[in-house]
């Protein structure tokens, strides 16, 4: 059982006996300390997609999924091929299936991901909680701040934009927390 608040990309819930993959989940405080979760769901049997809203405390039947370690093998257009690290089986996913983590997927990444299977079919991929990426572009430090509290925009090599500490420079390696859509965590230790 999961609550609406616990839904996140990769979760599969059962509705009318069908498994639905959560592809996107946006948490919002609606009013007077109640909250909602807007989700994008995909029916794993029919491929049908829909948007839904749940109250944070709605109780939902989640489906127990198999998970295996996998790494990104290559990208071909909108198709992402992952390889099982134990038996070298190749699995393909469309960009839509990994929409939530797509901003942090890039060619050459070596992160050991968790491939999520429903009835032996790969349905999603979870990134590690912390990943390391190189900053492709950012403006120079405007204020010479070294505290890490002043933020500025930066771009990764795949075009993803995020806020980083003011002292971060081009080609710096940074740590990113992939939960809640991905946020700057700190400069990676060399």
């Amino acid at each position: 059982m999961k609550t609406g608040k616990e839904l996140k990309p990769g979760t599969v819930i059962r509705i009318d006996n069908d498994p639905w993959l959560v592809q996107k989940a946006e948490f919002t405080k609606s009013g007077r300390n109640s909250a909602i979760m807007k989700t994008k769901l995909k029916n794993l049997l029919t491929g049908y997609k829909t948007e839904t809203v749940y109250s944070a405390d709605d109780k939902l039947d989640d489906v127990i999924l198999d998970r295996k370690e996998a790494t990104l093998s290559f990208i071909n257009g909108d198709t992402y091929t992952f390889m099982d690290t134990t038996d070298y089986t190749m699995y393909e996913l469309n960009a839509e299936d990994i929409e939530a983590v797509l901003p942090f997927i890039e060619e050459g990444m070596t992160d050991v991901c968790e491939a999520v299977f429903f009835e032996e079919r790969l349905v999603s991929v979870d990134l590690p909680t912390t990943i390391v990426r190189k900053v492709a572009y950012t403006e120079g430090s405007a204020r010479g701040d070294t505290s890490g509290k002043v933020m500025k925009p930066a771009k990764l090599s795949n075009g993803t934009e995020l806020s980083v500490a003011d002292f971060i420079e081009i080609d710096d390696m940074i740590e990113i927390d992939t939960r809640d859509g991905g946020s700057y965590k700190g400069r990676a230790k060399s």
Binding site: I15, G31, S34, E51, T52, V53, D58, D61
Partner: peptide, 19 residues
Amino acid sequence: YLSAEDWVEGCHGLPSPQP
């Protein structure tokens, strides 16, 4: 609840299929 935030338009009228 009533709110003027942008997300309201995107959530208004959406279904919430229950188990």
